[in-house]
Design a protein around this nucleic acid. Structure first.
Length: 268
DNA sequence: TGGTATGTTCCAAA
DNA sequence: TTTTGGAACATACC
């Protein structure tokens, strides 16, 4: 369940239960997901108190006291779950954070792509991430500057976390439809109106995702209603809500891509 | 059985 | 140097 709105939803769901709690133990059941080595991570986490839970791009960030940070990236199939004395760990549980109140936070991840990072240098971990699309710094002027520097196609441009941090395959396709821009359009050829539309579309689509508690497109993530409001994602062959043309489904940069060939302008 | 999946990284080639 | 394509990571669903 992992793009900006799903991660933000997760943060909001778990923030109250985690803030102010002390970590008494950490165990990884698939150590390759943990940086540094699980043994070191356990030593670093034990006894630390979670002071604040927030989001940076698609990372869940826990500020630790007296020092350090715990970052969790859900990648393709990760999710968090609570476990108390009465429940047992579900299938695909990959890590257990035991808390002082006899509760445990579980990291569940069928595909094992997720990452758990413990670090005293947050800046080093997040240094390559681009602008937060819902922050005040992400203005149309800033987007213009980012776009003008590169001769890339819009779809891979928007998916690049070092440019704008948080969009994934779903919200990229949705934003491009909202902006009426074809995914193969050249980034550096957009005019002012295009950029303005794209800027507004990115923000509105992400906000809608958060408002609807994210999207649930398969068995992995139960919550969320965004999937009932997709305009193009996963709707290949179905009618465009705006013009009735069949939504086209193709591949761009190894990613499934859906768009309306009639509504979305191909800027070459 | 094979194709596909909300992500990221590394490498080779253009 | 920039951009793109392919493979890899690993598992489950249809």
């Amino acid at each position: 369940m992992p793009e900006l709105p799903e991660v933000e939803t997760t943060v909001r769901l778990f923030r109250d239960g985690l803030t102010g709690r002390r970590i008494v133990d950490f165990r990884s059941l698939w150590p390759r997901q943990v940086t540094p080595a699980a043994k070191t991570a356990t030593r670093e986490l034990r006894g630390k108190t979670i002071e604040r839970v927030w989001r940076r791009a698609k990372f869940i960030v826990c500020d630790l006291a007296p020092r350090g940070h715990l970052l969790i990236h859900l990648r393709m199939s990760g999710r968090l779950e609570w476990m108390d004395g009465r429940t047992s760990a579900p299938p695909h549980t990959r890590a257990v954070f035991s808390l002082e109140d006899n509760r445990a936070l579980l990291f569940v991840d069928a595909r094992k792509f997720g990452r758990i990072i413990v670090s005293n240098d947050l800046e080093r971990v997040t240094r390559n991430l681009g602008v937060e699309p819902l922050s005040r710094e992400f203005t149309a002027a800033r987007l213009t500057e980012l776009l003008s520097r590169r001769a890339r196609r819009l779809k891979p441009f928007l998916l690049d976390q070092s440019v704008i941090a948080g969009l994934g395959n779903i919200y990229t396709d949705e934003a491009l439809f909202e902006a009426r821009l074809h995914p193969l359009s050249r980034a550096d050829r957009l005019d002012k109106e295009h950029v303005s539309a794209l800027h507004g579309a990115i923000r509105s689509v992400l906000r809608e995702g958060i408002r609807r508690h994210g999207a649930s497109i398969d068995w992995i993530y139960p919550g969320g209603e965004m999937q009932d409001h997709f305009r193009v994602y996963g709707r290949g062959g179905e009618a465009c809500h705006a013009c009735n043309t069949a939504i086209q489904s193709t591949r761009v940069g190894q990613r499934g891509t859906s768009f309306c060939p009639s509504c979305q302008v191909w800027v070459k």
